[in-house]
Amino acid sequence: MTTVTRAPERAFLDNDALMLRAQDVSKRFTLHTQGGTSITALSDVSLDVERGECVVLAGPSGAGKSTFLRCLYGNYLATDGMIAIRDDSRAERHVQITGAEPHDVIALRRSAVGYVSQFLRVIPRVPTLALVAEPLISRGVDENEASERASALLARLNVPQRLWPLAPATFSGGEQQRVNIARGLIAGHPLLLLDEPTASLDAQNRDIVAELITEARRRGAAIVGIFHDEATRESVATRRLELSAPAASLIH
């Protein structure tokens, strides 16, 4: 873990390589149906990630790895701490997503942050090819070029061409996950958050995904990911961040 020494107001200006800064991030959930019990899922996690790094989150089940990724993406609002992500369109060169307006978070996701979850969540009846091409089109890429690039990536991920005109809701788990990976990687975001992207894949397709992740890192992407497969983890990681389960997880 990189030692955090500078506030985000200067850090992104002083270091062109810095893509992500998280300081003392914690997350608690309140169970309103169980008498207001509070569960601590994540406690005081700090991390800096620079371009060209792949930081793998490690630790036992319950350590908060997926919770941390969702906080980084803005799906969960951190209870405590600060998360900032580089945005070179701003004078301060970053957006502090802990407290940002929703439209700023959405814009940041479009321009800077790619996210691959364990499960594909899409609008029903949208064809696979259109689904994968959409992140490019939303960034202004011509539709024909976007479709060509989507086709090439789907082919590389061994998604059969006969499936491209179909919506992926009825695909196998492995096919859906490969579509999910293609959609998450195609836009070449400078920051990638990957939550077990290879969990549903066989060894051959895990290797292909590991190659794509390594290529993204070598192009300069900053990557934070969870990989339960040890071979994939060893293949892609430049370093690890070890998380441990919070000492006291229940508060009544």
Rank of each mutant, 00 (worst) to 15 (best):
R86A: 15
L69Y: 08
S111F: 05
R21G: 02
T30Q: 13
R70P: 00
D24R: 15
R109Y: 13
V95N: 07
D229F: 07
D207H: 04
L193K: 03
A231Q: 11
V49N: 01
A84L: 05
R240V: 02
F119T: 12
I223W: 08
E234W: 02
N158H: 12
D142P: 00
H228I: 01
R51F: 06
S38L: 10
S200L: 10
E53P: 00
Y76N: 10
V141A: 12
L31Q: 08
C71W: 15
M1Y: 13
G64Q: 14
A133S: 04
P102I: 10
M19R: 08
L191W: 04
A17D: 14
R93Y: 14
N180D: 12
L163Q: 04
G225Q: 12
P102Q: 12
L13E: 12
E143W: 06
M82K: 07
R28G: 06
T37F: 08
I223N: 04
E175C: 04
T198K: 02
T33W: 12
T33Q: 15
R217E: 11
Y115Q: 06
Q34S: 14
S138I: 11
C54F: 08
L57A: 08
G36T: 15
A182R: 03
D202V: 03
A210M: 14
I181W: 10
Y115S: 02
D24C: 07
T2A: 08
R51C: 10
I97N: 01
G35P: 09
D207F: 04
D104H: 05
E215T: 06
A182L: 11
A7K: 13
A41K: 07
I137Q: 06
S244K: 03
V159I: 11
V179H: 00
R6S: 10
A100H: 06
A248R: 14
Q118Y: 14
